[in-house]
């Protein structure tokens, strides 16, 4: 699966849950949203090998 995060693309060759993907990328589910096409995924959902997803970071700095 192809995962886009902050302009970088990561590839994984097996299916996994959203929460496992975030763990692999060392990201907190509290601050990220995973999107597949138009669909927003929750932590428990499965990602298939052929999926293309985008991880949106919700954190912004410099208040």
């Amino acid at each position: 699966m192809k995962v886009e995060y902050r302009g970088q693309v990561f590839e994984f060759d097996r299916k996994m849950r959203v929460k496992d993907l975030l763990e692999k990328l060392n990201l907190s589910p509290e601050s990220t949203i995973v999107v597949r096409g138009d669909e927003i995924l929750t932590e428990e959902e499965w990602l298939e090998e052929e999926d293309q997803v985008k991880v949106v970071s919700a954190i912004s700095g410099g208040m």
Binding site: T32, I33, A58, G61, G62
Partner: peptide, 26 residues
């Protein structure tokens, strides 16, 4: 609201916004 909750509201309402952090906040 947490940041994630605000981001989700904005995305679901199809409001485009600057995702990149301010370069000086790094």
């Amino acid at each position: 609201f947490t940041e994630k909750q605000v981001a989700l509201f904005t995305i679901l309402n199809r409001i485009p916004y600057i995702e990149q952090e301010c370069p000086y906040s790094v």
